[in-house]
Amino acid sequence: MKLVIGIFRPEKTNDVLEALYHADVRGFSMSRVQGHGGELERVETYRGTTVRMDLSEKVRLEVAVSDEFVEPTVSALREGARTGQVGDGKIMVLPLDQVMRIRTGEHDRGAVTPVSN
């Protein structure tokens, strides 16, 4: 079992969700985060005040998956999120000790496998 974390551009969210759907990955959590990954800073001007935006809006997606789903999930994330420009984001895979589905009390593999129907 692994926890796959993807951090990518907000404008690629829809592409990532579509790619995950095609890879049969159904359960995940998403949050909006701000970060900096070496991309060129945006310069914005407000009433003559020029500011450099060091933090960019990103989306962070967390997916807990069983081992055979790690590779499809990572591929789908990359395929959906990539533009080829600096600032596309990162995909991180972390070991996962335990997962429990709150509703049923199922553990681990049963907990990360989507309910069919």
């Binding site: 701000q34 900096h36 945006r42 310069v43 914005e44 001007t45 407000y46 005040t49 020029t50 500011v51 450099r52 935006m53 060091d54 933090l55």
Partner: peptide
Amino acid sequence: DVISHGEEAYATGEGALLV
């Protein structure tokens, strides 16, 4: 907003450095 005008309607201001 960012591309044509260099502004955002809902800027948080976090991480904005004065140039």
